[in-house]
């Protein structure tokens, strides 16, 4: 078996074991939070809000809720794991070994995707209690799922490379990811916004991800799916290029 493939598998297994070992911290909170969201926003308030995009409000928010947890968890997995590797210096285990930068990045991103998948499935299970799911295009659901978590896992990797303290790894999720997610069409259709804000919303990449995911489930979207997929691939390629450059230069990890 190819040595780089073995190294990749090792990183993925190590990353997976890490979040599985601490599942009450990594998987459970998302399940609890989403259940509360469904009860409060979906059931209690949703029935008063009325339909959105010709569907029940709880049905409308379900895909975005799932994707929101995927985004948060993919990002959190990589940023916390790689930064703690820097902090405890065990990232050196990889740096002294014959592991190319691309394999290091792919391994961590894959770990992030798997956590996104694990949490997404758990939250999807919760959603199934409240919503009747019949995916319009299962393949598109899976593709958006993987692309979204890969984009944010790569973002988490870059954040971890630059981070110098544990505070630095919470700044982006708090001040960038959360606002972008809440304004990314999870809880409303952008058709409700004034024309100017509709245009501003189009600069939010999460809008495309949420809409593509919603389309995969219901076949309904505010934006064109081809465009959404192209944007996701563009973000993934750009962020991966940045991450590989940082690794190549040793920024944040080598003196």
């Amino acid at each position: 078996m190819n040595a780089y493939w073995i190294a990749f598998q090792t990183i993925v297994v190590k990353e997976t074991m890490r979040f599985v070992r601490i599942w009450p911290q990594t998987v459970l909170p998302a399940v609890v939070t989403t259940t509360l969201y469904f009860i409060i926003f979906g059931r209690l308030m949703g029935e008063r809000i009325g339909p959105m995009d010709q569907m029940a409000y709880i049905d409308f928010i379900a895909p975005g809720m799932i994707l929101m947890t995927v985004i948060t968890n993919s990002y959190a997995n990589v940023v916390s794991s790689f930064y703690s590797g820097k902090f405890q210096r065990h990232v050196e285990e990889l740096l002294v070994a014959p592991v190319p930068n691309g394999v290091i990045l792919a391994g961590y991103v894959c770990g992030g995707i798997l956590r996104g998948l694990a949490v997404g499935l758990a939250v999807g299970g919760v959603a199934a209690w409240f919503v009747d799911f019949h995916p319009h295009s299962p393949l598109l659901v899976l593709l958006v799922f993987v692309l979204t978590s890969a984009v944010f896992a790569t973002g988490g990797f870059i954040n971890a490379v630059f981070a110098n303290s544990f505070d630095d790894i919470s700044i982006v999720p708090t001040f960038v990811l959360t606002p972008l997610t809440y304004l990314g069409g999870v809880f409303y259709s952008i058709d409700l916004l004034p024309a100017v804000w509709q245009k501003v919303s189009l600069f939010n990449p999460i809008l495309y991800m949420v809409n593509a995911f919603r389309y995969g489930i219901y076949g309904v979207s505010d934006i064109a799916i081809g465009w959404a997929l192209a944007i996701m691939l563009g973000f993934l390629a750009s962020l991966s290029a940045v991450a590989l450059y940082l690794l190549h230069k040793g920024i944040g990890i080598k003196s």
Partner: peptide, 19 residues
């Protein structure tokens, strides 16, 4: 090394990084 990992896993993982 990762202080929270079991001893054997630390050594096995390093072997994995070496292919």
């Amino acid at each position: 090394f990762n202080q929270f990992e079991p001893v054997e896993e630390i050594v096995i993982n390093q072997a994995g990084f070496q292919g």
